[in-house]
Design a protein around this nucleic acid. Structure first.
Lengths: 188, 188
DNA sequence: TCTAAACCTCACCCATACGTAAGAGTTGGA
DNA sequence: TCCAACTCTTACGTATGGGTGAGGTTTAGA
């Protein structure tokens, strides 16, 4: 089940990663000390593709610190944190347009506490959703376990022989009905 | 966050659901006794749309028991189980083409035990994946909780004042670093 | 017989999150 | 100076799971 079309990840960079520290524009918004990152470096650092990074920038989720003379994007170090943040929001089930909303609201909020309150709202809602999803997944896991059990034990011992009345390996006396995951496969 | 474009579910059927029992073709593959279902009835019974049912049929996941004189699809009762089965496989993360594969393999397997073995393989793999997902979701839930805690307590009490050295409400002595979900929102 | 509601078969449309390619420019070490 | 590796922009392609008509037919109750 491995994806047959893996995106071309970047090769190991032969160019020196350590850039002259002077370029790190200490005085500016780049709170991160150290060299700036090219888009490929950021991609490698985050496990994303260059295309994904570009997309995030298009959507306003991420902004390069500046550009080189040749218009190469240069990202501050903490862009790595930002990209990971985006990934986590995706894991939480937010779409990129939804993340756009979060960013917009966060940037437009007047005060820091206002921004914090907004985030709290979003996260509280997502926490609830996540808990619901957890519950659903747990149920699915149980169904899978029951189906596996049925497929290996009950079905083989009970149904293959004709004696439905006694099934030593089944805890329940009644002939165990096939779980939905098993029953559904047999229809048609 | 409610979907603005809800698919038109079917209206309550004014037509009598109870069809003449004679139509139920008792002798045939329809193990289910009772009337056959029209596509809309099947849709209502499963919470799917008619279009979805049609799609499942196109993909070979589902087959109507027969057609009426006017080419209306008529499904056996247990088609409901089949559709629910499809839904559960989707919940497990299988795409419709993947479900196609399962169906194909299941139908092509010579013996029942062979088919069971195949299903076991699929389900065992999905069980592992589900457990991994559970673990990931649990982590996310914890991160959300930590972020909510940080946003309501630590951030307000510690960072708004200038005294970083002592934070009465924080259990850890060190100034609590913002969780990724909080830190990421502040970048740029 | 009439009619509303359901159904039929195309067939095109949608959002999401990138993949992929083309053609050209940039970077930096050798 | 040269070249490989990297990056640029533009723009179309892809997969998934249906949604949404259009235009016509069937059903079944009244």
């Amino acid at each position: 089940m491995a994806s047959p079309t893996e995106p071309r990840r970047l090769a190991l960079a032969p160019t020196t990663l350590a850039r002259s520290v002077e370029e790190a524009s200490v005085g500016d918004a780049g709170r991160a000390e150290g060299a700036l990152l090219q888009v490929g470096e950021l991609a490698r650092a985050t496990g994303k593709t260059v295309r994904a990074i570009h997309l995030y920038e298009e959507l306003g989720l991420l902004t390069p610190h500046d550009r080189s003379k040749g218009r190469f994007r240069r990202f501050a170090r903490d862009a790595v944190v930002r990209v990971r943040w985006i990934s986590k929001l995706q894991d939480l089930g937010l779409t990129l347009p939804e993340i756009q909303e979060v960013v917009r609201a966060h940037e437009e909020s007047a005060s820091a506490s206002h921004a914090a309150a907004y985030l709290r709202g979003v996260y509280a809602q997502k926490l609830e959703e996540t808990r619901r999803k957890l519950e659903q997944l747990r149920e699915l896991a149980h169904e899978l376990e029951a189906s596996l059990h049925f497929l290996t034990h009950c079905d083989a011992s009970c149904c293959s022989t004709e004696t439905i009345t006694s099934c030593p390996s089944c805890e329940h006396q009644a002939a165990a009905p096939a779980p939905d995951l098993v029953a559904g496969a047999r229809i048609h």
